[in-house]
Design a protein around this nucleic acid. Structure first.
Length: 473
DNA sequence: ATGTTC
């Protein structure tokens, strides 16, 4: 008997519209139609999609019928503002037109109050990466980003920089033994308080993600995620950690909320696009009103994903600190894909979305990475409201992943990395240092936004390699 | 970003 799973594509063929009904149908198939033939499943779903009204009270298919009906009643398209609200751009000459176009659309949303574009900005989905958007009582899942709570974390150790040069092999092994990328996960994941949160049992989408959260905790993802040893140089002795000016062996990590955040983002983006119909060019900027149940749920789930991302970083650093046999002198951490409740110039509460942007409120510490062959920066925010208390989250891409694979040569990239004195595990051409803007130029565009307290120079870097194809150990 | 199409 054919028992293959029905796909979203199959459901669309049956006449399912884009949106929540497809997800509901998938759930119902899992729960009530297990083992039934594909023909049987299709026939049942076809009847519902043709006449949802008859199935509203149906024990199994009721939720599907409900989603189909809500869908057809919420089709009113909201208009954008005629004129966009003005916003600030930092380093406009280095920002691609596509990112500026996206920001201009975001500034026309009826819920938008303020915006700013950071110097590392480039085109994304909905809001550009490097876009900051303050709204009135509305949260936009795609202005938070797919990797909710993605962040940087650095720990600084009382170990002289010479150790990195003398013990490169040892550091490489520490990364191999204590970090997991892509599909790979730890055999025995470490427990963490965040896994015990009641919320995992209170929101449907989170119930289905609890096992994944447990399995993936302490791991890093793919793409631009990394864990690296390097040298932090503290340039200012007047710092929060009482660290004397000097150089220290340090660990820097970049990663997010893994499958948990990705699935939360996907679920609520769809819900938002269902509930808030916007003209085509703005459709990905659909928001959830914070006074609705869906908005409240997303807010809670987003915060949980943020805490989960933080927990992953902390475990990464705990493992490496143990491998080094040291306790960190300092830990610096900041999100760059998230939304916060903050106050604007007029003292009103706004929802500030930072999609690939570093919080830079007055005195707020953060890390802005460069590339694996150029320094990152430890920064302190200046609280500039023109930028909505934000700064760039890195150098930003100049080459798309596709362009990078087309134009760069493996040999050339390897040579460049070797010449910089960097040891690399994993990575691909799409993450070569050459795909990033010059970080020094990017920093020069944001001197009004952040003060530089120190630098970080990568020495031994690990990124996702072949693990994305399924190696698990 | 992502068991990269629910």
């Amino acid at each position: 008997m054919a028992t293959r799973k029905l796909t979203g594509k199959d459901l669309r063929k049956l006449g399912f519209p884009e949106g929540r009904a497809i997800g509901e149908a998938m759930k119902v198939l899992e729960e009530h139609f297990k083992g039934k033939s594909i023909l049987h499943k299709k026939a049942a779903l076809k009847k519902v999609v043709e006449n949802p009204g008859l199935y509203l009270k149906h024990e199994a298919l009721g939720p599907v019928a409900m989603a189909l009906i809500i869908k057809t009643e919420h089709n009113e398209t909201l208009a954008l503002r005629e004129k966009r609200i003005p916003y600030s751009i930092y380093g406009a000459e280095g920002i691609e037109q596509g990112a500026i176009n996206q920001m201009e659309i975001a500034m026309k949303l009826p819920v938008t109050k303020h915006g700013a574009l950071m110097p590392d900005a480039h085109q994304g989905y909905g809001l550009p990466i490097g876009g900051v958007l303050a709204t009135n009582n509305a949260v936009i899942p795609y202005a938070v980003g797919v990797d909710i709570g993605c962040r940087m974390c650095m720990t600084i150790y009382d170990i002289p920089p010479a150790f990195a040069h003398q013990s490169t092999e040892a550091l490489k092994n520490m990364l191999l033994e204590n970090t997991k990328f892509g599909q790979a996960v730890f055999k025995r994941p470490k427990d963490h308080e965040v896994l015990d949160r009641g919320l995992f049992n209170e929101i449907n989408i989170l119930k289905s993600l609890k096992d994944r959260a447990w399995m993936q905790i302490g791991s890093s993802g793919g793409g631009n995620h990394f864990v690296e040893f390097g040298i932090a140089e503290i340039l200012n002795g007047d710092n929060e950690f009482n660290l004397p000016i000097g150089k220290y062996l340090s660990v820097l990590s970049h990663s997010g909320s893994r499958g948990v955040g990705a699935n939360i983002a996907r679920h609520y983006t769809k819900l938002a696009m269902d509930m808030t119909k916007l003209p085509g060019e703005a459709k990905h900027l659909a928001w959830l009103d914070l006074d609705t149940e869906a908005g409240q749920e997303y807010w809670l789930a987003m915060n949980l994903a943020g805490d989960y991302a933080s927990a992953c970083h902390h475990q990464i650093h705990e493992r490496l600190a143990a491998a080094l046999g040291e306790k960190p002198l300092a830990l610096i951490e900041n999100h760059h894909n998230f939304a916060w409740k903050e106050q604007d110039l007029d003292g009103n509460e706004v929802i500030v979305h930072r999609k690939g942007a570093t919080p830079a409120g007055e005195g707020v510490l953060g890390i802005i990475p460069g590339s694996m062959t150029s320094p990152g920066f430890i920064v302190k925010g200046k609280g500039n409201l023109e930028s909505i208390n934000s700064a760039s989250h890195g150098a930003g891409r100049v080459l798309s992943r596709t362009r990078a694979k087309q134009t760069l040569s493996k040999k050339e990239v390897k040579k460049h990395i070797k010449k910089a004195g960097v040891t690399l595990i994993g990575s691909g051409l799409d993450e070569a240092p050459q795909v990033y803007k010059n970080i020094h130029e990017v920093m020069a565009h944001q001197t009004e936004l952040v003060e530089v307290l120190g630098t970080f120079t990568p020495k031994v870097v690990r990124m996702c390699g072949d693990e994305r194809f399924g190696e698990v150990d």
